[in-house]
Each structure stands twice: as structure tokens, then as C-alpha cells.
Amino acid sequence: MIIAWQGWRLEVPDRWGPVRVEGDADAGYLLMADLHRPRLGMRWKVAGGKRFKAEVAVTAAVRQEVGQLAAQDARPLSMDGGNWQAPLLYEDDEPPGRDICVAYSLTSGRIIELVYHAHHRDRVLTQRLLPTLVDTSRSEVWEWSIFDLSCRTPSGMVMAKHRLNAGDLSLSFTHKDGSAVTVRQLAMAKLALQRRPMERWIAEQAAWHGKQFKFGSSPVESEGEPKRVRQQVVRRRRYGWAWWLAKGYTVLARHDQERDRLVIVDATDEALASELMDTVGWASTKQTKGSMESMDTEED
């Protein structure tokens, strides 16, 4: 399973899932766990400044995580496949304990820290997780993948909010130029559509924008494949003075038959909604099995 969040990307076993997500692109924390215990913590923080030295900052991060004495045992590490500076690795001598890897990413200017909760002595962190770690800069297209919702956002878009309910996941992004987009994915789409037709799901999504908006037209189904339903939402005339609100939204909905997911995207711009809709599910289609599957069996 691929976890891609706030510019970084990592491949983890399918059994691991995020249980805690905090922060934004500048600083944050994500904890992954399986059914039994925490497995991996990811921490990231922007670092820099006039007197900034990657080595000092990385050492300080290790010290903060494991303490002064243990930090002395941390050793330099070579990390391939990225623009990393001063990576340090600390492995607990007597597991259960924590293995820690901290490195400064020249790509995004952030200190990235991986805390692997080792149950017994293994090389999961160094041999399986670290080779899959990728960091991207803000000027690039950002990939997002959490649980089974995945999409790609154009450069410059930042996450405004996320709602990760079981079976109902949504991510919202905004841009400095005022454009905004929300991706929502519902699991077990067949069941969801039995209870409520697509039009009502779209209406519910449109209602998120508040009473200032109304439907511009009746929903239109596209002719090409995959079939999509499009609905325009426009600002009510009596809110014409509200310059800070978008003029309207385009809501696109699609039933992904293969994955049995209902995907709803709404954006201030139709092209943006369509572009994002095309990228939804990129992580599911990608071949990520193989090495990670063997890792699962090895551990459990």
C-alpha cells in the first residue's frame, strides 16, 4: 500500500493503516498501525535559516526522539533514490523498541523522521521502508494516497482539510489564486447507490458549500467512458455581493465499477475537477505488491 501525504510518499504493508494524522505541509505527524500495535510514525518539519546546518538539525531530532545517550549510537546511513542530506539511523539494541531514521530533504527543505516500532530485531526500516521513501518539492505535482483514496493535485495546491471516516474519505485543497477542489470517495458504492441515487449524493456534496449556492442545471451524464455525472452549482443572485465566495462549482461523480467506489469531485473550475477525477485511484492501479507482501508474512 502506498501512503502519500503532504509531499512525501512511502510504501508500507497492506495491513498497516494510518491511525493519526496531524499537521500540514510544513510540520506534521502521521502514525501507522496494524490491528495490534503502532508500526511506524512519520514526522516532518520545515528547517532552514541563515545558520542552518543539516547535520546539527538531524542530530538534534534524533536526540529529541531517543535521548542524549542513545543518540550517540546513531550512525550515518546512505540513502539512495532521493536528495537526502546527513541521514542518521538509530537501531534499538534490545527490541521491542524504536528504530529511527532522520534525514534532511534538500528537495522540500524538510527534516523527515521515520520511527519504526520494532517488535523484534529485523531490517524492515532499512531494507524495506527507506528505499521506498520519496520526497517532492512544492513546485511539483503532489501525490496523495491515504487508505484507498488517492489523487494528484496540481502544483501550488495545499490541503485545506481532510475527513477520514471509515468508508467515507474526503480531501479538500485550495490554491492561492482562489481555486478549490474537494475529492470524496465512498466505499461499497453499489450499496451506497442502492440506498441513494447518484443525483442525491451529488446534491449532498453540493450542500457542503452552504445556502449561498443552488443548482445551476439538472445533472448531465457524459457519453464517453468512464461515465460521469456532471452538475453545476452556482452562487445565488442575492449573494452576488459576496466577492469572497466562488461564482460556482462543478460537481463530477463517477461510479468506479472495478474498485466499487463512488468518487465525487467538486471544484471551482470544471477543468480542474476533470483533471483531478482522472487521477483518482492512481495508487490502487499501481503494482505495489510483491516485496511488501513478503514483508507481511515475515513479520506475522
Binding site: M1, D14, R15, G17, P18, V19, A33, D34, L35, F147, D148, A166, G167, A187, M188, R259, D260
Partner: peptide, 12 residues
């Protein structure tokens, strides 16, 4: 059966 991640299924 429903192709949903373990964590999501666990919660529900």
C-alpha cells in the same frame, strides 16, 4: 470481502 482497508473495517 468488501475490499476495504483493515483500519477502516476495524473502526466500523
Amino acid at each position: 470481502q468488501y475490499n476495504i482497508s483493515l483500519r477502516e473495517m476495524e473502526v466500523s
